[in-house]
Amino acid sequence: MPFLESVAAAAGDVPALLALAPEAGRTWPHPGDGQTVVLWELLASVAAIDVAAARVLEPHLDAVAILAQAAREFPADTTLPFDAANTSWGVFAAEAPGARLEARSAGAGTLLSGSKPWCSLAAQLDCAVITAHTDDGGRAAFAVDLRHPGVACEEPAWIARGLREIPSGTVHFDQVPATLLGGTGWYHGRPGFAWGGMGVAACWLGGAVGVARDFRTGLLAGAGAGREPDQVALAALGEADRTLTASLQYLARTAGRIDDGSLGSGAGQSTWSEAQRIRGTVAAAVERVLHLVGSNRGPGPLAFDEPYAKRMADLALYVRQHHGARDDAQLGRLTLKGDCPW
């Protein structure tokens, strides 16, 4: 596929990847529009090439989908004062102690003031979908032009060894105009919120596929040089295969349920609980593949094979967007209420 070839050529070059983002936003399907499996396959394929590339493109595609969802539900309220189709986008929805972004009504519009943490690549992006606290005590999403003079991006002390080209820092807003997307509670309450979380899991899984391919390639290279893989290595490759295959099938089945409308339509089962299952299952699969491959390949490739070492470090950091036992506890609360398929 030519686009994936362009991703491979641009890997490691954030401006080049951001230049590809508008094309993906215009041509790739949106979740829930009948081709969710195609979207997730594309995201996974990008991550299998380069995890950081997926970390660049996925938020842009999520933002484009959010804008489309808002425009369908609130067509009279989502006209943007800038060119959304030909710009690069992020999605900034994290919260942190000591950082608070406020949205205040100003005549017929809204102004954002305050600080927003964990804004990846903010200094290099054109626009963002961003959540802020509203006058009525809730939170809402807004579209904002990051090039406005009231926007100041901190230079983060980004010491991470993974995703080194994707720094995440705090952005400060001073009376920055913003376009409301859907009203208070809409961003977190729409089905697309869960769909977006599953799309991130597709990226994690694609990264793990890349790691497993590195492992298989290494075993084949060793065999070609007369070092046949032993039973331990073959067992690790076999376990990686069934772990990845099970998660890939789960994602594909869930994508089909999103598109046919059956996800979340059953008695007592919500879209969000399924998103938590998907994310937890994929995160566990990724962690297992990282362990299997890392323990079998040993320190040599981590020390001397730059693409492999980068992939391992990038994926280990990216998958930490899943909060482990805390996310399982949230799922457990839903399960206790009967929000489960069993």
Rank of each mutant, 00 (worst) to 15 (best):
S6T: 13
A8W: 03
A11T: 05
L18T: 02
L20N: 07
A21P: 04
A24R: 02
A24M: 00
R26Q: 10
R26H: 02
W28Q: 13
H30D: 04
D33P: 00
T36H: 01
I49F: 05
D50Q: 07
D50S: 05
D50C: 04
A52T: 06
V56H: 10
L57S: 00
L61Y: 04
L61W: 09
L61M: 08
A68T: 00
Q69W: 07
Q69F: 09
A70F: 00
R72G: 09
E73T: 06
P75Q: 09
T79F: 00
A84H: 06
G90A: 03
F92N: 10
A94P: 01
E95Q: 15
E102I: 15
A108Y: 05
G109D: 12
S113P: 06
S113I: 01
G114A: 07
S115P: 08
S120N: 08
D126E: 13
D126V: 05
C127G: 11
V129Y: 06
T131D: 13
D135L: 09
A140M: 02
F142H: 10
R147T: 13
V151L: 04
E155L: 12
W158S: 02
I159Q: 06
A160M: 07
S168C: 03
G169F: 04
T170W: 04
L180P: 11
T184R: 04
G185F: 01
Y187K: 09
H188V: 15
G189R: 10
R190L: 13
R190A: 13
A194M: 12
G196C: 14
G196L: 12
G199W: 10
A202H: 00
A202T: 01
A202D: 03
A212F: 03
G222W: 14
A223Y: 11
G226L: 05
V232E: 15
A235D: 15
A235K: 14
L237C: 02
G238F: 12
A240K: 05
D241Q: 12
D241K: 15
L244D: 01
L244P: 02
S247W: 12
R253T: 03
R253A: 14
R257F: 06
G261R: 13
S265L: 12
Q269I: 15
S270T: 10
Q276K: 10
R279C: 01
G280T: 03
T281A: 09
V282L: 06
A283C: 11
A284W: 15
L292P: 10
G294V: 14
N296F: 00
L302I: 13
R320L: 07
Q321K: 08
Q321P: 00
R326P: 03
D328N: 06
G332L: 02
L336T: 09
